[in-house]
Simulated assay, not measured.
Amino acid sequence: MKNLIIDIRLLLGLACAHALIYFSFHDKAIFWYIFTGSILALIAYSKFQGDVDDEASFGQYILVGAISGLLIYFIFWLGIKGFELFNIPFQKDLNRLYKWFAPHLFWQYIALILVAAPGEELFWRGFIQKRLMNYFKPAISIVLAAVLYATVHIYSGSWLLMLAALLSGFAWGLLYYWKKSMPMAIVSHIIFDIMIFIIAPFR
C-alpha cells in the first residue's frame, strides 16, 4: 500500500482524468469538442507510461471482441427490462443522457469510434488497471479500476451513467485481464458503443 500511495504516475493520471472529464461535462453545448480532446490527452499520457498487452491474433480479437461487445449490450438490455419490471425510475435520466451527451453529428460518431472507445480502454484498462496490478491481486485490481472509471462519470450528474460505467468497466477489465489483448477490449467497446448509440439505442 505504501508504494501505491507514492505512485505519482498513477495518482497524476487519475487527477488528470478527473479534471479533463469534469471540464468535458461542464458545458453540454461543447461536450464533444472537450471530451474528444480530453481522451486524446489521456491516450498520450497512458502511452508514455508503458506498453499494453496484445497477445491475441487478429481473428481472435475481432471475433471475441465483437461477441463480447454484443453480450455486454445484451446484459444492459436485460438491465433496462429489469428496471421496467420493478418500476425503477430511469427513463427521464436515460433520455437526458441521450439528449445531452450522445453523438448527433457525423464527426461525433467518428470521434466515438476512433477516439473515445479506444482511448478509454487504453487509459482505464491499459494504464490504470495494469498499474493497479502492481499492488493488488487481479480481482481487486479489476474491481478497483472499474470503480475509478465510474467515479469520473459523476460529473455527468447521472447515476445511470455511473452505474453503466461501473458494470462495463468491470466487463472490459475482466476481458482485458483474461485475454491479455488491448485490441480485443477496444473492439468490444466499439461494438457496444455502435449498438447503444447507432443500431439499437435504449431511448
Rank of each mutant, 00 (worst) to 15 (best):
F127S: 01
G126C: 01
Y33W: 15
Y98M: 04
W107E: 15
R125C: 07
L105V: 02
F90M: 14
G119L: 01
F106N: 13
G50T: 12
I113P: 05
P89T: 09
V64P: 00
F86P: 04
L85W: 11
F86Q: 08
F106C: 08
Y135V: 00
I72M: 11
E120A: 05
R131G: 04
Q49Y: 12
K92A: 13
W32L: 09
L112T: 04
A111Y: 02
L78E: 06
V115I: 12
I110L: 04
N95M: 10
A66Q: 03
F48A: 07
V64H: 05
L63S: 02
E55N: 08
Y135M: 02
Y73P: 02
L97V: 15
A111I: 07
F58H: 06
A44L: 10
T36D: 06
I128F: 03
A111R: 10
S38G: 15
Q129S: 03
F76T: 11
V64D: 02
K28R: 13
L114C: 12
P103N: 14
F90N: 08
I113T: 09
F83T: 03
L122A: 11
A66L: 14
L85E: 13
F101C: 08
G82T: 15
V52N: 01
A44P: 00
L114G: 12
G65Q: 03
F136M: 07
R125N: 07
A111C: 14
D51E: 09
L71W: 11
L105H: 15
N95G: 13
D54C: 00
S68T: 13
Y33D: 13
F25Y: 14
F127Y: 06
N95H: 10
A111H: 09
I30Y: 05
W107N: 13
Q60P: 01
N87S: 15
A102Y: 04
L132D: 07
L42E: 03
P89L: 01
F86C: 08
L114H: 11
F101N: 08
N95S: 07
I110T: 08
W107L: 13
Q108T: 07
K28N: 10
P118W: 03
Y45R: 11
F90Y: 15
G82V: 08
F127D: 00
E120R: 05
L63D: 01
L40R: 03
L85T: 15
Q49E: 11
E120V: 03
S68L: 11
R125F: 05
G50K: 02
L70G: 14
A102P: 08
K92R: 13
P89H: 09
I88D: 08
W32M: 07
I80R: 06
K99L: 14
R96V: 14
R125S: 00
W32I: 10
F25L: 06
N87W: 13
T36F: 07
Y45C: 09
Q129Y: 09
V52G: 00
S57P: 03
Y109P: 09
E55A: 10
W107K: 14
G59H: 00
G65V: 04
I39A: 01
G79P: 06
A117W: 03
S38L: 14
Y98Q: 09
K47Q: 13
I113W: 12
F31C: 12
I30P: 02
S68K: 03
A44W: 12
G65E: 01
G119D: 01
Q49K: 14
L122M: 06
Y33E: 11
G79D: 10
I39C: 04
F48N: 05
L97G: 10
R131K: 15
L112R: 03
S57D: 04
S38K: 12
I67G: 06
